[in-house]
Nucleic acid binder design. Structure first.
Length: 684
DNA sequence: CTAGGGTTAG
């Protein structure tokens, strides 16, 4: 955690009014109270403190400048405004803006910049104009210098917008501490941050993966009762998406739609298609395409590519092909990314010829294949056993000067593994390093598997040992690969030793250790490490929570499920559909029906959308409790919901009644469905 | 004055 005095020594502000760490008593959907931690250090010193002497010299009179015609006309049109302006000290209408901006842009250093600005001391330039200068100024040091000039020499009182722009410039230069300090300075001047301030801060921190800081600013914003706009909501959705907290993203999207005056635009919708897909809400994703058209937002190539990629991720290749033909029908243009996805689709469908044609036909469509296209086709060749073609294409890339990357090499290494040429695979590691392409965890786990299959386990073990001592990042799959290699070679003791070391991990993160232990069925060890890591504030990744909830549920450790879930909520994560299903189930098994009911209702109120199975499960829980009033009322609610499979709903409810020996109710439900079917048939 | 989306490798 940084100290604010650090900024104070740089810029000379004496005290700080910004409260760190922030503790919010208000209940928010982001109920995280951890203060931000930023590890970045400031490498450059602010110039503002060192250059002040320049401003102390006598400043000459402002130069005369002709007002252009356009400005004169504007003056006439805004006469009332002009009269107000005359009382104000701003006189920038007598200055040629473009000329001044050009000369400012041409200055090489801060001294030159001051000499341009100094004639205007006395507020001949409006705040508006100063913002123009600042927003065109890419250099954070110069931005700060201009801000200081306004504050200390030219007797401006910089507005909120001025600070917003300077904060943006400082954030773009990744000067995190300075941004915090500027925020503080802003408060000291009695300025209240607005949605732009927060939007800028939240976005820049989250873009850098500094999610703690991002959440901190979000809390500040909520505490200030600043309400968001489309941009801010989009940023929050993006932030949740990056944290893989898709339920939260959906909740924010629903809050956005519910706010009344904000209509999601193309980019917001495309992000949501991706979110729905990641949340496995495929129907919602597809429906959003239609909803966009209804709202007058035409789905773009990226909208379709996003959904295509989702289908691929979930092995829904037939749906992908069908969506691709829809794309052609509605004449949505196809670009490089679309092509790359479709090569993948045909490859995964074992339609090698189609994939091949697609790849070689791209250029005729005016689309030049890139590294990703080549890498994808390489993999398709490899999986089809076309090793000669793969090797040929690999050298063709080099002949054509297509840049190769770590993925290219990993793919080729894997292909040589398949063709049992493990020496060639090994050589590729040397080759990539000599070409300046660094192997990564995927490279190493690929080669360890290959060596294990080739009976060179000693070599694999040596490499793994070297990696552990050399500081290479070891993730769970790489670690797991080595364990599996030992197990396959019958060296169970070695495998166990690796697992045991995870209880006190020194080369891998505790998050990684927890996932491996849990997946290896070491439930108690996993829980032990989890508790330790959680208390140390090390568990951040939502997938870790999901992973162990999954394992505990399978092991029927329902109390553990609930404990992990509560900790997950404590740090502000929303449950995804899998987690909520498992937790509802755990509550049911523990006979804590009220808690299941409360959770389900809370998630509904917070705007979460879940697959049908979750709703059906809740119905089942009400049924298990013999609470048929609740069954009926939830049934009615779901039945009037447009996005629920009605047929399944009726079967589920009828089944609940049957199990409770209430056959009259069961047949009542089934009849209701049949009547509906007849009615809609009659209408059609 | 501010802003956000899609593709490849274990």
């Amino acid at each position: 955690m940084f100290s604010l005095s650090f900024y104070a020594t740089l810029v000379g502000s004496s005290s700080s009014s910004c409260s760190f760490p922030c503790s919010s008593s208000k209940t928010t959907i982001f109920n995280k109270t951890t203060p931000p931690t930023t590890n970045t250090t400031i490498s450059t010193t602010s110039t503002s403190a060192t250059s002040k002497h320049v401003w102390t010299r006598r400043i000459p009179h402002p130069p005369f400048s002709n007002t252009n015609k356009q400005q004169q006309q504007q003056q006439r049109h805004t006469r009332t405004q002009q009269q107000q302006k005359q009382q104000s000290p701003y006189m920038d209408r007598s200055v040629d803006m473009n000329e001044l901006l050009t000369s400012i842009a041409q200055t090489q250093n801060i001294e030159q910049l001051y000499s341009i600005l100094s004639p205007y001391n006395g507020r001949q330039l409006s705040i508006r104009f100063m913002i123009s200068i600042l927003s065109r100024e890419p250099d954070w040091q110069r931005s700060l210098a201009i801000l200081d000039w306004m504050n200390e020499i030219a007797q401006y009182s910089p507005s909120l917008n001025v600070y917003n722009v300077v904060i943006r410039n400082v954030l773009r230069a990744k000067q995190w501490q300075l941004a915090h300090g500027l925020f503080d300075e802003m408060l000291q001047k009695g300025l209240s941050p607005d949605k732009y301030t927060y939007s800028t801060l939240i976005t820049h921190f989250s873009k850098q993966g500094l999610f703690d800081s991002s959440f901190f600013w979000l809390q500040q914003m909520e505490r200030d009762n600043v309400s968001g706009d489309l941009v801010l909501y989009s940023n929050l959705i993006e932030l949740s998406r990056k944290l893989c907290d898709y339920s939260k993203a959906i909740s924010i999207f629903n809050a956005l739609k519910g706010s009344g005056n904000i209509v999601p635009d193309l980019i917001a919708c495309n992000m949501m298609i991706s979110v729905y897909g990641k949340a496995k809400l495929f129907r919602e994703a597809r429906l959003l395409l239609q909803e966009m058209r209804d709202n007058g937002v035409n789905p773009s190539t990226a909208s379709y590519s996003t959904l295509l990629a989702i289908y691929v991720d979930n092995q829904k290749f037939v749906e992908a092909v069908s969506l691709f033909s829809e794309m052609n029908e509605v004449e949505c243009p196809i670009d490089l990314t679309t092509c790359n996805i479709m090569i993948d689709v045909y490859g995964q469908l074992q339609m090698i010829k189609e994939a091949d044609c697609f790849f070689w036909g791209m250029r005729k469509m005016g689309i030049e294949p890139n590294v990703v296209s080549y890498n994808t086709v390489l993999r398709v060749y490899g999986e089809a056993g076309l090793f000669g073609e793969a090797v040929h294409l690999f050298s063709l890339m080099q002949m054509k000067g297509v840049p190769q990357n770590v993925v290219t090499y990993n793919t080729m290494i894997s292909i040589y593994g398949k063709s049992l040429e493990h020496d060639k695979a090994t050589n590729l590691i040397q080759e990539m390093q000599s070409r300046g392409i660094q192997p990564n965890a995927i490279t190493y786990s690929t080669i360890i598997s290959i060596w294990e299959k080739a009976g060179k386990l000693d070599r694999a073990a040596m490499l793994f040992h070297k990696l552990r001592t050399s500081g290479v990042k070891i993730d769970e799959i790489l670690y797991q690969t080595m364990i599996v290699a030992y197990q396959k070679a019958g060296l169970v003791a070695h495998a166990k030793r690796l697992l045991n070391e995870l209880k006190q991990p020194d080369n891998v993160s505790r998050e990684t250790a927890i996932t491996i232990l849990a997946r290896a069925g070491k439930v108690d060890e996993a829980m032990w490490v989890f508790r330790q890591a959680f208390d140390a504030g090390e568990v951040k990744d939502i997938s870790v929570f999901g992973c162990i909830i999954d394992i505990f549920s399978r092991e029927r450790k329902y109390a553990h499920v609930v404990e992990v879930f509560e900790k997950m909520r404590e740090v502000g994560h929303f449950p995804d559909s899998n987690v909520i299903a498992l937790v509802l189930n755990a509550f049911g098994k523990l006979r804590k029906f009220e808690r299941a009911d409360a959770l389900y209702k809370q998630m509904y109120e917070e705007g979460c959308v879940f697959p049908d199975e979750v709703h059906f499960q809740m119905l089942g829980l009400y049924g298990a409790r013999m609470d048929f009033n609740m069954v009926e009322s939830l049934f009615e609610k779901l039945d009037s919901h447009p996005n629920i499979n009605k047929k399944e709903l009726h079967f589920v409810v009828a089944n609940i009644y049957e199990r409770a020996d209430r056959f009259n109710d069961a047949s009542r439900i089934m009849n209701r469905m049949n009547h509906k079917a007849i009615r809609s048939h009659g209408n059609a």
